[in-house]
Design a protein around this nucleic acid. Structure first.
Lengths: 127, 127
DNA sequence: AGCAGTAACTTTTTTTTTCAAAGCGACTTG
DNA sequence: CAAGTCGCTTTGAAAAAAAAAGTTACTGCT
């Protein structure tokens, strides 16, 4: 992981979630704050969960995620790519085609996402 | 759960995350969207993770979460309370004292939060 | 050839969300 | 009395997300 250049670290974000949480032994410690640096931004959890179903192009992902603005999807994909959670592959074509997939780091998140889904199934009323 | 009046359901949200996700058997299904209805809003994951360490008052929670605006914390606590993820208890005092704790629904989320923390520890660079 | 459609974004404007600061009433302490 | 804390509420500014239109590069159809 330390070999991945983290350009996100050079972008000073207001109220960075990585500065939050009392140091403790409980679930809310620095690690959880780091997880929510991504997951606490609208759409990231859903995007990663959708990509867990398999590789997608931009438009397919937009349709499968459902309800996200193009510009927000583009920005999220860039951030997730820069953080090495997803892999962006370009087929030069023609026609040019771009596909997105979970990286190993992103894939490692899937069991936790599954746990979240299981929790919601058991604990949240259907909308 | 079904005995809890869900006022959140009467508030039509634009781009509701519960309308997202292709139906599928993968992690991104309706259940995950429902989980991110809460967790995809900034601060909710951290708030729930902080409360997993034990009951807190408002000011203590604000300090322990770190970096959240009063007004946002107040609103988040109201939403989480309305969704029955937390319990709000009032000690009439004097002085009056309000405390917040995870409900059984909120508590059931803790293992998934722990999984997220473990993933971050193994997969995300320290900031 | 022109047209319409799709993909993968980008740009602009509008709307919503979050932030920062101040405020309020109810207390406690020195 | 003043100053501090608590648990919020209010206001206006800043940031993020949404909505809509746009661009380039194709493909397929008439």
């Amino acid at each position: 992981m330390s070999s991945v250049p983290s350009e996100a670290a050079t972008k000073v974000e207001r109220s960075s979630l990585t500065d939050t949480c009392a140091s403790g032994t409980g679930p809310c410690d620095e690690a959880l704050a780091r997880a929510f640096q991504f997951l606490g931004k609208r759409w990231n959890g859903i995007i990663l969960g959708t990509l867990a179903n398999g590789t997608s192009g931009f438009a397919e992902l937009r349709r499968n995620v459902g309800g996200i603005a193009d510009s927000v999807l583009a920005e999220r994909l860039n951030e997730l790519h820069e953080a090495a959670l997803i892999i962006r592959s370009v087929d030069p074509g023609p026609p040019v085609a771009v596909s997105y997939a979970l990286s190993p780091t992103g894939t490692a998140l899937v069991p936790a996402l599954q746990a979240l889904g299981a929790w919601a199934t058991s604990n949240l009323p259907p909308s």
